[in-house]
Design a protein around this nucleic acid. Structure first.
Length: 423
RNA sequence: GGAGAGGUGGCAGAGUGGUCGAUUGCGGCAGUCUUGAAAACUGUUGACUGUCAUAGGUCCGGGGGUUCGAAUCCCUCCCUCUCCGCCA
């Protein structure tokens, strides 16, 4: 959520940012400013009345203590006259506050200066490419055929016991997945992230904190009986660990990593985009989250990008890094780098990680703050990224490394998987 | 699922209608002492809003009510703990 101070200080900055993010409802900005002005004026009135009431109540108390019953009664009557008026103003004030809040939460975060202009994925900027696209002239099966061939994943059984988009990993497939999780977590721990094993369901306040609510409830599975949401990413429980806390400045940056399954309804998806592992309703992911000093958050972002890039390189996969354009970025993000790996049999790029700086957008909602050198509380910046999302990594590993003899396992993973080849 | 207890400042824990934003202890910060540290002693220490700065206002789990006045009384919702039952 954008802070209201910014609307008072720099309306033009907000308008420019929203435009870049391809946000349509720009009149909202003026509405917010005018409601905020009315709200503040009313606040002054309300506070003055409250102040008068407080002093009167105190005087009555003192008169009673002295035994001056008549004087007390007299004052009571006087105060009673203003009660209705005060109630009326307080009601109006709270209505305005609600209205203001409702409008504020509908505005997305403003994009960073480095974010390219644009509306669609075509406008994203390729920052770097790496790795080598393999030559698959000998054999070129898409991963959903490879998983069948080697008995790694059973999509049919997933259909049977749950529904489409819930693959069942089996045998070496299950082990491959488990070894990747282990590898990724260790990679992050070695870089100084603390491992967290969070709950996979969260309450409403947590879903609101990271920006899933309001508006995006349709993307989450909802356990209505208990009003819990299945997490779409570990970012939600992990970032919310620090909701409503003031962190010591010396503790920054806070670095955490978590493995979790992720649940996404993905309503309305269809076609070849969702074939095999390309898009599923439940998948595994290892996430990194940092809470950083505002002055350092862009350094932190660079280091996270570098960290994920090295990880992908260690898996020997061809990849590219995109800087997302304003129109393609998520609601809460100020800047996002997407990592895609090349799926050599499908001949397409698949997103496997997304690293973002949210600046104060999430922390303003969650009230995650620190005390600066002057003893003033400030919001920290929150950042996160996948390192990495499993299914598409698996799809690429299978497709890119297929040989007539079997599927080769990259060196870095071999100690975890225990074999050099799937056959 | 049944029965009971309870939610107060970073933590512990007082406070049952009137200068209570809240006694006290611990912790934190600053100082005295010390070569330095510890101990001891002294002082200081909540958040939000608002103002150029004051002032003012709000906050004792959330919401609502009674009252001139609520942390304290009433209603309601949420959460935590203990015992029993069930269970990985």
């Amino acid at each position: 959520m954008l802070s209201i101070q910014l609307f008072r200080q720099n309306k033009e900055l907000i308008l420019a940012g929203l435009k870049k993010k391809n946000f349509k409802d720009l009149e909202l900005v003026d509405k917010i400013i005018s409601v905020d002005e009315r709200r503040r004026a009313l606040q002054v009135e309300n506070d003055a009345l409250a102040s008068a009431q407080n002093t009167a109540a105190k005087s009555i108390g003192q008169l009673m203590a002295k035994g001056d019953k008549e004087g007390a009664e007299l004052l009571k009557e006087k105060v009673g006259l203003h009660k209705e008026q005060a109630k009326d103003i307080a009601q109006k004030l709270s209505d305005l506050e609600t209205e203001l809040q409702d409008m504020l939460v509908r505005l997305p975060n403003l994009p960073h200066i480095a974010v390219p202009e644009g509306k669609t994925p075509e406008d994203n900027e390729v920052v770097r490419e790496g790795g080598k696209i393999p030559d698959l002239s000998a054999q070129k099966l898409p991963h959903w055929e490879l998983t069948d061939k080697y008995g790694l994943i059973n999509f049919e059984l997933g259909n049977k016991i749950t529904g489409s988009g819930f693959p069942v990993f089996m045998g070496q497939g299950a082990k491959l997945q488990r070894s990747l999780i282990q590898y990724f977590l260790n990679w992050n721990i070695d870089a100084g992230y603390m491992e967290v094993a969070p709950p996979f369901m969260v309450n409403e306040a947590s879903a609101y904190g990271t920006g899933q609510l309001p508006d995006k409830e349709g993307q989450m599975y909802h356990a209505t009986e208990d009003n819990f949401f299945l997490i779409p990413t570990a970012e939600v429980p992990v970032t919310n660990l620090y909701r409503d806390t003031i962190i010591q400045e010396f503790e920054l940056p806070v670095k955490m990593t978590a493995y979790s399954p992720c649940f996404r309804r993905e309503a309305g998806s269809y076609g070849k985009d969702v074939r095999g592992l390309n898009r599923v309703h439940q998948f595994d992911k290892v996430e990194v989250v940092q809470l950083a000093h505002p002055a350092k958050s862009y350094e932190v972002l660079e280091s996270m990008v570098h960290h994920v890039e090295k990880l992908i390189q260690s898996l020997e996969l061809p990849y590219r890094i995109l800087r997302l354009c304003g129109g393609d970025m998520s609601f809460a993000s100020a800047i996002t780098y997407d990592f895609e790996v090349y799926s050599a049999a499908q001949e397409r790029w698949l997103e496997v990680s997304s690293v973002s700086n949210f600046e104060t957008f999430q922390t303003n909602r969650m009230k995650i703050r620190f005390k600066d050198g002057n003893g003033k509380t400030q919001l920290v910046h929150s950042l996160n990224g996948s390192s990495l999302a499993l299914p598409r990594i698996i799809a690429c590993l299978l497709e890119n490394n297929q040989t007539p003899e079997g599927i080769k396992i990259p060196k870095a993973l071999q100690p975890y998987f225990g074999k050099e080849i799937i056959d």
